[in-house]
Simulated assay, not measured.
Amino acid sequence: MKDNPDVLALLDGYPEDLRIVLLKIRSLILEIASENDAVGTLQETLKWGQPSYLTVKPKTGTTIRIDRDTSATGDVALYVNCQSSLVSDWRGMFPDITFGGDRSVHFRLDKPLPEPELRQMITMALTYHSRKRSSVRS
């Protein structure tokens, strides 16, 4: 994946504490995509003004967006398509994490990122379509 200069410029404009956490999540997304053969080619772009990561060849996953959290539930959020079952699945798997509706997971800057759980969520998002296709064939 090529770094998108617009995404990097947006992230550079955030306060340091937000930027550090968002860059950590970005790094996890890139690392997981590069280490997992089930993930298609990843593209970094801006969608709705937010850093976004989508699989393009093949379309194995759903788009992941990350940004500052403008709600009262956290400081940083990871968003997925609300039409997916991902947040519902995660809610059952990780009951101690804060979720927003059917599209987001929220993190506070004053607490460490739950990295093992976040890794699993990112992997599930990046392979969402391929896993759905596999379960239909089974």
Rank of each mutant, 00 (worst) to 15 (best):
residue 42 L to T: 06
residue 42 L to V: 08
residue 43 Q to A: 10
residue 45 T to L: 02
residue 45 T to G: 00
residue 48 W to N: 06
residue 48 W to C: 07
residue 49 G to V: 07
residue 49 G to K: 02
residue 50 Q to R: 08
residue 52 S to Y: 02
residue 52 S to H: 01
residue 54 L to K: 12
residue 54 L to A: 09
residue 55 T to Q: 04
residue 55 T to K: 05
residue 55 T to I: 00
residue 58 P to K: 07
residue 59 K to L: 04
residue 61 G to R: 05
residue 62 T to I: 11
residue 63 T to F: 06
residue 65 R to V: 07
residue 66 I to H: 01
residue 66 I to A: 02
residue 66 I to K: 00
residue 66 I to S: 00
residue 67 D to A: 14
residue 67 D to R: 04
residue 68 R to I: 11
residue 69 D to P: 00
residue 70 T to P: 02
residue 71 S to C: 11
residue 71 S to N: 09
residue 74 G to A: 14
residue 74 G to M: 03
residue 74 G to Q: 06
residue 74 G to N: 10
residue 75 D to Q: 10
residue 75 D to C: 11
residue 76 V to S: 01
residue 76 V to W: 03
residue 78 L to C: 10
residue 82 C to L: 11
residue 83 Q to H: 13
residue 83 Q to R: 15
residue 84 S to H: 12
residue 85 S to Y: 12
residue 85 S to M: 13
residue 86 L to C: 07
residue 87 V to E: 08
residue 88 S to T: 14
residue 91 R to Y: 09
residue 93 M to S: 14
residue 94 F to K: 05
residue 96 D to V: 03
residue 99 F to M: 08
residue 100 G to H: 02
residue 100 G to A: 10
residue 102 D to C: 09
residue 103 R to P: 06
residue 104 S to T: 10
residue 104 S to M: 02
residue 110 D to G: 03
residue 111 K to D: 11
residue 111 K to W: 01
residue 116 P to L: 04
residue 120 Q to A: 09
residue 121 M to R: 07
residue 121 M to C: 13
residue 121 M to A: 13
residue 122 I to E: 04
residue 123 T to R: 15
residue 125 A to C: 12
